[in-house]
Design a protein around this nucleic acid. Structure first.
Lengths: 137, 137
DNA sequence: TAAAGTGTTCGACGGAGGTCGATCACCATG
DNA sequence: CATGGTGATCGACCTCCGTCGAACACTTTA
């Protein structure tokens, strides 16, 4: 699963449009923010995305509060901001989260209903996992 | 996830006993056959095991027939028997399958009820995935 | 404009894991 | 006992990916 933005070399164009018909005042950074709808995500990518403990921590923390209330930097993760940014990109490309720029910060939202529709029970499985577990593989 | 048999160096001994109280005539090869109950498997290991497309093919083929009817060599997989053996070991250590020796062959069984109890919906997700998909990641 | 805060990108590194050929162990059959 | 079949094990190779520091881009605030 390549995360780089120029890796959109898929043979079949994705059917789900980003629904950004509004030519609203969009920040510069948001232009590089490509999203993938859960319906266009393979099971391989979904499982791979959620197989990482750091990414599951993000998902669980995100589910603990309302949408659009957590910026990337507010998560308690044992990695640097570079790795952090990487994990958020993977989750975004796997259709797990949605991101939106708010000033200099990037707010997040768990795509609960869409992802549940595409992979029923998978998010519940992650959210029912007990917190922390620092010694796991 | 180490698969080697001597890697049983876990700090906490697993609670689920293999239930092999029968001192029945057991083949020599079966002595090296260590199983892990799905209840003792972490979500990380479960997701990692099912994230591989070859292993998901095994699971899907296994679900297509009755228990104990498919030997390891009867699966249609695009890998050599060495890699094949590796994947079966990973699935066994993740509590997904159970294996039993029958003569010179090793028969397999999908641990449907136990695994469903430990990770509800996960197997259904895999089994509902469309077959083949040779070009996926 | 300068400085601080937030997040991404880049290049590099290291470990984990999927893959293979070769070999070995066990079982069945002649 | 010899042969063939099945599957595990070993060592090696190679790709993928999680990780980091450094640099960069954008935004806000002083």
């Amino acid at each position: 699963m390549n995360v780089r933005p120029e890796s959109n070399t898929s043979s079949t164009p994705p059917p789900h449009l980003p629904d950004e018909g509004h030519t609203q005042s969009q920040s510069q950074r948001a232009r590089n923010l490509s999203h993938v709808h859960p319906a266009d995500v393979t099971l391989s990518d979904a499982l791979t995305a959620l197989a990482d403990p750091v990414r599951r921590t993000i998902v669980k923390e995100l589910a603990g509060g309302p949408d659009w209330t957590r910026a990337c930097g507010t998560f308690d993760l044992p990695v640097t901001k570079a790795t952090r940014s990487h994990h958020f990109a993977v989750l975004r490309q796997a259709g797990v989260i949605e991101q939106r720029d708010a000033g200099s910060r990037r707010l997040n939202r768990l795509r609960r209903p869409e992802f549940d529709a595409a992979f029923p029970g998978l998010l519940d499985l992650v959210l029912s996992e007990r917190r922390a577990d620092p010694g796991e593989s």
